[in-house]
């Protein structure tokens, strides 16, 4: 966990692509809302591995949004329930239901469909908000904090040594979009 946090801090502070980190957070948001072993999550995780997004940020985002999804579960179920029981969409879902992949993905389950729809719909705002926040962090907050003596003291600590050891290029976190 500490290593992951160090990786995130490194990513935020390094010149890693902002879009890389923001995309990782947005994808982590979609995955975090649904139960981990669902078909769409496995597909997203596969893409996270093969496209160059920041893995540390993705894993932390999944952890964070899994916790938030627990609090949001009534809303998620409500969204799925209202979609699946919407008379206007009955024909569409009946058509989709005949496709094995639809059933395999459990999109006829109120929680899973609700989480997927909410995740996909909100992933774009999450991406842009994350991007904006990281930009602001790098320009203002990082330079502001570095002025403090306590930060300089922390730099001499064990945690910072760990942080700097990780700061060396990681093959998985390198590169950007």
């Amino acid at each position: 966990m500490l290593t992951l946090l160090a990786k995130l801090l490194h990513a935020l502070n390094s010149d890693s692509s902002i879009r890389q980190i923001a995309l990782a957070i947005a994808l982590g948001f979609i995955v975090g809302l649904s139960p981990i072993f669902t078909l769409h999550n496995i597909v997203i995780i596969f893409f996270v591995f093969i496209i160059r997004v920041h893995l540390g940020s993705f894993i932390l985002a999944v952890g964070l949004f899994s916790g938030i999804s627990y609090l949001l579960s009534p809303v998620i179920v409500q969204v799925g329930e209202s979609l699946l029981t919407q008379p206007a969409l009955t024909n569409l879902f009946t058509y989709l239901y005949q496709i094995s992949l639809f059933k395999l993905a459990h999109w006829h389950h109120t929680y899973i469909l609700g989480a997927f729809v909410l995740g996909v719909a909100l992933s774009a705002p999450v991406y842009f908000i994350s991007k904006l926040l990281i930009e602001k962090y790098r320009v203002h907050i990082m330079t502001f904090f570095e002025k403090f003596r306590i930060v300089q003291a922390l730099k001499a600590s064990k945690f910072y040594r760990l942080y700097t050891s990780i700061a060396g290029d990681s093959s998985l976190s390198k590169g950007g979009l």
């Binding site: 998620i76 009946t94 239901y97 006829h108 389950h109 609700g114």
Partner: peptide, 20 residues
């Protein structure tokens, strides 16, 4: 099928549609 009665639960539920 979609006409299933019941209040939504926090864990969700399967909704089954007509199939062959």
């Amino acid at each position: 099928n979609v006409t299933t009665e019941g209040k939504p639960q926090a864990n969700g539920r399967f909704i089954y549609f007509i199939e062959e």
